[in-house]
């Protein structure tokens, strides 16, 4: 379980009625230079993850998957070839001692297996789940984020963070309510 570093103030959160308002506000916040922010929605909205810069922030899950895949591929090929070509060479119907086409299915399966596992495990390690406490729960209306409201939170870890400025900025984005989130 990852320990979230506690800040006295977690950030400033804005509440929106519609996904369109949320994605417009997110785009404006990104363009205004805010980077450390997160959006909370009742259902996945693909364009919002685009707009908080999720893919631009060097999402390391992809890297973990790639490394896992490469390790799995090398491992799978080694498993097959070391066992039946090096340590105990088998002569099967006069084929070469390294019948590489026969090793490809094992290599492929191990690549997918290890890549998939490193993707899932890497994702869990990097997003901090499972996480029973989160500062955003301190906002009373946040419970509706699983129902019919859309939230954007600019966090105090952001280098550009200034509570008054962020509050003013979010106030101009058509938010229903802008509140400070205690850590």
């Amino acid at each position: 379980m990852k320990q979230v570093k506690r800040y006295p103030i977690y950030g400033v959160m804005a509440e929106y009625d519609t996904p369109t308002q949320l994605s417009d506000a997110t785009k404006r916040a990104f363009d205004a230079g805010y980077r450390v922010m997160d959006a909370y929605t009742p259902y996945p909205i693909e364009e919002v993850s685009e707009m908080i810069g999720f893919h631009r922030k060097h999402n390391k899950v992809a890297l973990a998957t790639l490394i896992g895949g490469v390790i799995g591929g090398i491992g799978g090929y080694s498993l097959a070839s070391l066992a039946s070509s090096v340590w105990y060479p088998l002569n099967i119907a006069g084929r070469p001692f390294i019948p590489w086409p026969m090793y490809i299915p094992v290599t492929f399966e191990c690549t997918i297996l290890v890549a998939g596992l490193s993707c899932a495990i890497g994702m869990m390690m990097m997003n901090g789940l499972p996480q029973p406490y989160h500062p955003v729960f301190n906002v009373e209306s946040f419970s509706r984020s699983t129902n019919d409201r859309f939230f954007l939170c600019i966090e105090s870890r952001d280098p550009k963070y200034d509570e008054a400025a962020v509050t003013d900025f979010l106030g101009t984005t058509g938010a229903r309510e802008v509140v400070r989130v205690d850590g």
Partner: peptide
């Protein structure tokens, strides 16, 4: 393409 190769290679 590889399925074709591996089946033929295995059958020989």
């Amino acid at each position: 393409s590889f399925s074709q190769l591996i089946i033929i290679y295995a059958g020989n």
